[in-house]
Amino acid sequence: MMSATDLKQATLEYALRLGDDSVVLGHRISEWVSNGPFLEEDIALGNVALDYIGRARMFYGYAAELAGDGRTEDDFAYMRDAREYKNLLINELPKGDFAYTQVRQLLVDAFNTGFLAELVKSKDATLAAIAAKASKETRYHLRRSREWVLRLGDGTEESHQRAQTAVDALWGYTFEMFELDELEQQLVDAGIAVDTTRLKAQWEVEIKAILSEATLEIPAGDWAVRGGRVGYHTENLGHLLTDMQSVYRAYPGCQW
């Protein structure tokens, strides 16, 4: 059993991880604004990005409350370096082409659907409440990304090829979504965190069904990259944070 202080510290860390996932993916999706294939899609992707930024604020806000040392949501977002960020790697990969973005969304949205449905049951009331709100958004996100992957996979030869390339490039980043480190295992035991190892089977069934309907192949899965939860990132995150944090850090201590 963890002491109450350790539990609080671990919960804070967990909230930060979930905030990191959200802010990093939100950042990537926001890069589509004014770059979408048509105006309606600029609006829709903007919406999804907004949901993720909102989610990040809730998780960081809760982390700030737990820290109780005057740090704010923005301190967590803007004052930590890449090595301190603990997002899953799949979220930080560049936005890629439209197929890459939608395939990533599908993989992540399907994961989040299962994840949030479990987090709603967390013994931590705040995390459960955030999950309840996010869960509604994610159902909509999944409906969108699923439809997009079907259209792209079963559209033209070019769209099929691009979608397949994206699936192949992203598949190796999905493994770590379903793994737990010691901290998360302890929180799972305490009824606070989600046991993601138990989500994989259902996720695979769902993803395989969608990809197969989209006439896309499941990759052999002979490589896997891991490390997000311990801060071992791809080279992309540093650039993302440099961009995101530039103004905040250039004028230390300011209110915006």
Partner: peptide, 20 residues
Amino acid sequence: TRAPSLRRKAVLLSKVQDEA
């Protein structure tokens, strides 16, 4: 992507979305 607070980022995102 460079908005200096998460709140400002959210507001700007939704504003640009409105313009669309």
